[in-house]
């Protein structure tokens, strides 16, 4: 009865909520028991945000504990570093290489660490992508979340059609083309 745990991290406002909903519904479609813990409220205002997605035959807790994540999907570089203690020993990180300075860095009270990508690569199986570039190519920088979902999708055993089916039911029709393209670009991405 093994359970897979995926942690989605980022900066409030980056669209992690939609990503976790797409992931959750895809997993349900694939026949798993699923628990997803979402973030609403204060931290959505530009703070660190963490969503946990756990699936398997029977899932009790919606929360991923330190050392428990099979995959960390990070929307931002520093947030991947922050989440590192949650990764399993042989876990995988997919990171959007975008840097967003947190307020202590902006005010000069702290520094944005250098060499994050290297630090992550030393400690985990890493895929880094400039999802902003791909999202722009798809037609909107708002599609960063779906680019990353595309990348995640390729790293799971869930058939591609299942993901596309969820996209069709969760994304507003107006933005479906952009999001399908974004998914495709993420899915096909080679480092």
């Amino acid at each position: 009865m093994s359970i897979t745990s995926i942690m989605i991290v980022g900066v409030g406002g980056q669209g992690t909520l939609l990503a976790s909903r797409i992931l959750g519904n895809t997993l349900i479609g694939a026949g798993y028991d699923v628990k997803v813990s979402e973030v609403h409220g204060m931290s959505q205002r530009g703070g660190s945000v963490t969503t946990y997605v756990r699936f398997g035959e029977k899932v009790w807790s919606p929360i991923i504990e330190k050392g428990g994540a099979d995959i960390i999907l990070s929307f931002e570089l520093l947030e991947a570093l922050r989440a590192l203690p949650y990764l399993k020993r042989d876990g995988q990180i997919i990171v959007n290489a975008q840097q967003i300075d947190p307020m202590p860095v902006i005010t000069g009270a702290a520094e944005y660490p250098k060499g994050i990508e290297e630090a992550l690569r030393e400690r985990a199986k890493l895929t880094a992508v400039d999802a902003l570039v791909l999202a722009r190519e798809a037609g909107s920088i708002k599609a960063v979340n779906v680019v990353l979902i595309g990348l995640l999708a390729r790293n799971t055993s869930i058939p591609r059609e299942q993901w596309e089916e969820t996209l069709r039911t969760t994304v507003p029709p107006k933005f479906l083309d952009i999001n399908m393209k974004a998914f495709e670009l993420g899915y096909q991405y080679e480092e």
């Binding site: 900066v11 205002r45 530009g46 703070g47 520093l78 570093l81 860095v105 702290a110």
Partner: peptide
């Protein structure tokens, strides 16, 4: 657990 190996500045919410 795997430690980050680098200092990680906090990211509090902002306007």
């Amino acid at each position: 657990v795997t430690d980050a190996g680098l200092p990680v500045p906090v990211r509090p919410p902002v306007m």
